[in-house]
Computed example of a mutant assay.
Amino acid sequence: MGIEAGKPKNGRGVYSRTRIIYAHIIVWAIFITYELSALYYIVAHFTSPLDIAIHYGLNISLFYFNALVLFPKAYKSKSILQLKLFVGIILEIIIYLTLLYSLDRFLAFLNISVLQFKSFNAYVVPSTYRAFFMILMSTGYWLGTYLLKSRIEIDSLIQQQLEDKNEQLELQRKIIISENAFLKAQINPHFLFNSLSFIYNTIHKLSASAAEAVILLSDITRYALRKTDASGRLPIHEEVEQISNLIELNQLRFNGELKIQFNVGLITPSFTIPPLLLVSFVENVFKYGKLDDAATPAMVSIKEVAGVLQFRTQNIIQKRKGTVGHGVGLENTQLRLNNIFPDKHRLDISTSENIYTIELDIQMSHAEELYTG
């Protein structure tokens, strides 16, 4: 186990690091005790505690510098790994010998120990051997921690892959459940359309307008339940057709007395839109608008300008009994716009002198920038 740099992220990290430090202290204590015991057995005496502390401090520093600095940095540069290691180890030994000699001179100056420098071989060779010994132990320590860390990372990657696989399987299971639920739900629309067909066949001889209303309602319902493409959209001309059906249906309800204008301009046929996105705005016109003033009729318009779909509604506000404000439906429509056309639409809702206006611009796929009008 290695001592990694950086601040631990939680209490468990602090606890684990503390245990690692304690383990290192215990191992070094055992190692030093063993060497001092062997030395005492051979020479039958100890040097001063300060001398022991300084020399082991230098050896331990060499150990950790080699394991935590030299090898990690050299390993990152794999193209020149051997050269960096060779030069680094030579420099380590030179610096180690220089510091060791300086410390021995300092201790001899303080009369704490005697500098044993009778000859080159008697001082430098054993010291170099000691440096190689510490570097060898340090290399083994680094290699062990590296292999252990690699194994942990591999196990973590395998675990992550298993979790991702399980998530994919769970997602596939939910998709299958959703598809089954959709197929099951189609039974109810079929029942509804059959019922509407029965009602139409029953009343068309009694009231042509009522029969036409049933047909319009059936078309709108069929459109709302129609299966969309992969992006959840349908061609724009179908949305325009349902707006026309909704207007006609409401005109039938009020004997054609509603004052409303519906203007449709040229629109790229390939443009698609989520079903009922614009219909919901038009529905609010009938639900909250005052539509009996011929001087100020309600207005609904849709056209394409410079690669931008422009949709507008305008009406006099008239709150009817049992209705308050413009409700949750409009909020849901705004959420749909944010989800489906993020950063590609502009929605402006305003009220001025009892006139309620909605302006919606949607950047079409072939447009380069949003037209702000």
Rank of each mutant, 00 (worst) to 15 (best):
Val27Pro: 03
Met299Gly: 09
Lys287Pro: 10
Arg130Ser: 14
Ile358Val: 09
Leu258Val: 08
Met137Trp: 09
Leu50Asn: 01
Gly11Ala: 07
Arg222Met: 05
Val282Gly: 04
Ile203Leu: 10
Tyr129Phe: 12
Phe86Ile: 11
Asn201Cys: 08
Asp361Leu: 15
Gly11Ile: 04
Asn180Gly: 13
His45Asp: 07
Ile199Trp: 06
Lys184Tyr: 15
Leu70Gln: 00
Asp229Val: 03
Ser37Glu: 07
Thr372Trp: 08
Ile175His: 11
Leu258Phe: 14
Leu70Val: 14
Ala298Ile: 02
Ser61Thr: 04
Lys149Thr: 05
Phe31His: 02
Asp348Trp: 06
Ile112Asn: 00
Tyr96Ala: 02
Leu278Met: 06
Leu335Ile: 10
Ile349Leu: 11
Ala306Gly: 07
Met1His: 13
Asn354Ile: 01
Leu162Glu: 15
Ile317His: 04
Asp343Ala: 12
Ala74Trp: 00
Leu83Met: 12
Ser61Glu: 08
Met364Ile: 08
His326Trp: 04
Leu103Tyr: 00
His345Asn: 09
Lys259Arg: 09
Glu359Gln: 04
Gly232Asp: 02
Gly256Met: 08
Val285Thr: 02
Ala367Leu: 03
Lys319Arg: 15
Phe106Arg: 04
Leu252His: 10
Lys184Asn: 15
Thr98Trp: 01
Leu36Asn: 11
Tyr22Ala: 09
Glu167Thr: 15
Met137Cys: 12
Ser16Leu: 13
His24Met: 10
Asp164Ile: 12
Glu35Asp: 08
Ile247His: 02
Leu347Met: 06
Asn166Lys: 12
Gly256Tyr: 11
Ile158Cys: 15
Ile247Cys: 09
Ala131Asp: 00
Gly11Pro: 08
Lys76Thr: 13
Ala5Leu: 14
Ser16Gln: 12
His190Arg: 09
Tyr129Ile: 10
Thr272Val: 02
Val300Asn: 04
Asn201Met: 13
Leu183Gly: 05
Gln318Asn: 10
Phe271Ile: 11
Tyr223Ile: 02
Lys174Arg: 05
Ile32Lys: 01
Ala185His: 05
Asn166Cys: 07
Ser209Met: 07
Phe254Trp: 13
Trp142Asn: 11
Leu234Trp: 03
Asn315Phe: 00
Ser156Pro: 09
Ile112Asp: 07
Ala213Pro: 01
Val300Thr: 01
Ser197Asn: 13
Phe271Tyr: 10
Leu107Cys: 02
Ile176Gln: 14
Gln334Asp: 02
His55Thr: 12
Leu148Arg: 10
Asn339Glu: 13
Ile267Val: 11
Ser16Asp: 13
Lys259Ala: 15
Leu258Glu: 10
Tyr146Cys: 15
Lys184Gln: 14
Glu331Asn: 10
Tyr356Leu: 01
Gln242Asp: 10
Lys184Val: 04
Thr351Leu: 08
Ile317Cys: 06
Phe71Gly: 02
Tyr146Ile: 02
Ala213Trp: 06
Thr357Trp: 04
Phe63Val: 00
